[in-house]
Nucleic acid binder design. Sequence first.
DNA 1: GTCTATAAAGCGATAGAC
DNA 2: GTCTATCGCTTTATAGAC
Lengths: 203, 203
Amino acid sequence: MARGSFRDQVLRVREDAIVSSVNRLLAEKGFEQMTVDEVAADVGIAKASLYKHFASKEALAAAAMVRVLERTMEVLGQQAARGVSAVERLREVTRWALRVQLAGEMPILPSQNSSLRAELLGHKPYLELLMQVSDRLGEWIVQAQGDGDLDRSLPPELVLYTLFARACDPVPGVLKSSGRHSDDQVVDWVLSTCFSGIATRPS
Amino acid sequence: MARGSFRDQVLRVREDAIVSSVNRLLAEKGFEQMTVDEVAADVGIAKASLYKHFASKEALAAAAMVRVLERTMEVLGQQAARGVSAVERLREVTRWALRVQLAGEMPILPSQNSSLRAELLGHKPYLELLMQVSDRLGEWIVQAQGDGDLDRSLPPELVLYTLFARACDPVPGVLKSSGRHSDDQVVDWVLSTCFSGIATRPS
DNA sequence: GTCTATAAAGCGATAGAC
DNA sequence: GTCTATCGCTTTATAGAC
């Protein structure tokens, strides 16, 4: 791919810094609670300059959502290249998502009545990526059920939503905030409750 | 307890209607997205009248949170009176919470950076009730682990947070919104993923 | 493109008449 | 206690100078 002129590269770097700030602020406070003033202050430029790069607050958030989905697709590609079972791939992708969340870098899913939601539903790059991610995960879920590793009585739809929800669950953050457990310990526990539940496994 | 004068009873009924509106709006949009104008319009009185009953928006929300905790305590009392195992009591309480959530009547947990959080931390009735609920659930969790019904390797703290989080999980709502499943079916599925996980039970 | 300054709208909360 | 009207503040977005 062409990198464009030097000027374009500088622009890219600047916009990438903006998206990083938006991503972190979205993870921290969610879309409605995040203010454009905060984003501008965090990036270190004036608010009016922000609007030269992105047309609206919704466009800012959409860019962050697209980037996290792109990174998710990269992780899916890495897992696909490993010679492990489908359920193991699902577990490792979930582990990655939980780590991102604990690092404070997982932008919050748009709540159902958000103005962001309307914007995203009309944003093709986002929708296409979301569909790609869902399709790939859906394949692995069906495959893992066929392997006998995931519960066959659960609809794949339910499993998919459950995995998405765990990536935004407040539980890891609350557990981490107690300060008594390492990130890896928290991730292992939440992974365990997600895949194996809280009940005892029948022996 | 004294019921007070007729005038006081009318006041109680009025305030109960306010709290019901707040409860539903909190469940629908969360604290920050809920506006006092909406509450007033929903109750059918002027905004200034609202402020004669409750000192602030935070006080409105706190009243709703207290009421849901009171109802939770009632449910805990009912379950305690049944002659069933601790894990079964926990499952039924969770089932009740999921039904309330699907009915659109489970006020959303205060996010960590909310102005509501500060108010609630200084609100003794709320804190006391929350502690009562947590203590009772904590006892049952330890008991269920002792019975061999809940995974002993999980800290009770993790199990407690997990149950609280499931009461506010977006998954049931998303599943219900597809319109293809009954509420009972959705609740059964989510209960299954919560207690038994998504993985196959080893035979 | 970046800035300062400001417009336009929505919000929580209150004043004051009845 | 209820109402109408409004204050004071925050927020998104833009105008216009440089």
